[in-house]
């Protein structure tokens, strides 16, 4: 029986590269750019965070900056705020994306326009939406004017704070608007490829609507939903523009706090800004790594969701 292996495994395209020189010519320039610019930048950042290369200090390594940052009560405040905003944005966007994707799949290909419209936010810069959020949600924004017109409030100060606010509502709304289409399109591509056929199989095998969602749709979309959510989390955790424009002055999201320190007139604060940047990178990388490990383990144990 082993002789009749399914024909899909062989891939005529990927082959062993016969000559190393040609391979290094192809990969070399890209490796140099990423290695020197990205790797170099990262290493220089790490060196500076350990006190090396700094103007005011001697060239010896110390963990002083890390101690300073980690001991700073503002750091912890910023960390909690960042975790909260990144988690909330990701969860809300992921949940709504599943709903939107399931809805769009029922429309099938009847409505091409809506499939196009849903992609608009993908290419729109975050900054534009942050500006729009200011115009829309600020105390003198469009929403507040509507509330006034409807007689819900009497002065702009009665309008609830939706930007530069304690709960990061403006930031979260901006991210949710921007990321729902991203996650939705990722889910839709798997759902509309194999999904529709597998759902039909499920239907003839007597699965009801809920069972089809739970036992077919969810397992199908889970890998891409997870990957997309992870990307969104990593992005929202480290991104700068949106909280810089829409965040409150205290506590700030980590990226803003890092930049404030970095651009402080007091040059001694600069390495602490870099240190915070490195910490953001470490947290993001660890999250991605952990998610990978968890998926690997659950796959190996045969648990699907």
């Amino acid at each position: 029986m082993k002789g009749h292996q399914l024909q899909t495994n062989h891939n005529f395209r990927t082959r062993m590269a016969p000559v190393m020189p040609s391979l290094s010519i192809l990969l070399g320039p890209a490796l140099i750019v990423v290695g020197v610019l990205f790797g170099g930048g990262l290493i220089l950042g790490i060196l500076q965070s350990f006190g090396y290369l700094h103007v005011a200090a001697a060239n010896h390594l110390s963990i002083q900056h890390y101690l300073n940052v980690l001991m700073d009560p503002d750091f912890l405040e910023s960390l909690w705020l960042t975790l909260y905003i990144a988690t909330a944005s990701t969860l809300i966007a992921a949940g709504l994306s599943v709903a939107v994707a399931l809805f769009l799949v029922t429309l099938a290909h009847k409505n091409r326009l809506i499939h196009f419209i849903i992609q608009i936010p993908l290419t729109v810069p975050h900054l534009v939406i942050a500006v729009a959020a200011v115009f829309m949600l600020s105390p003198t924004g469009l929403l507040s004017r509507f509330a006034m017109a409807l007689g819900l409030i009497n002065t702009s100060s009665q309008f609830p704070l939706l930007i530069n606010d304690r709960w990061g509502i403006g930031i979260i709304l901006t991210y949710v608007w921007k990321e729902i289409p991203f996650i939705t399109v990722m889910i839709l591509s798997v759902l509309s490829n194999t999904g529709i056929e597998l759902l039909q199989v499920g239907q003839t095998l007597k699965a009801n609507r809920w069972q089809r969602f739970r036992y077919i749709t969810l397992p199908i979309i889970f890998p891409s939903l997870g990957a997309a959510s992870l990307i969104v989390f990593a992005y929202t955790f480290g991104a700068f523009e949106v909280p810089y424009l829409l965040g409150q002055t205290y506590p700030m999201m980590l990226s803003v706090w890092a930049y404030r320190n970095y651009s402080d007139i007091d040059l001694l604060a600069r390495p602490e800004g870099i240190t915070t940047g490195i910490l953001i990178a470490v947290i993001v990388s660890l999250t991605v790594l952990m998610a990978q490990v968890i998926t690997k383990i659950t796959r190996r144990k045969g648990i699907v969701l």
Partner: peptide
């Protein structure tokens, strides 16, 4: 092509996507 170290190289290319621009630019 398949070649030795392909996984490592693709991870290397993936890193700038994951790591926020912030710390690299500062570095």
């Amino acid at each position: 092509y398949d070649f030795k170290g392909k996984d490592f190289i693709s991870l290397l290319f993936m890193l700038p996507v994951i790591v926020p621009p912030l710390c690299v630019a500062m570095g």
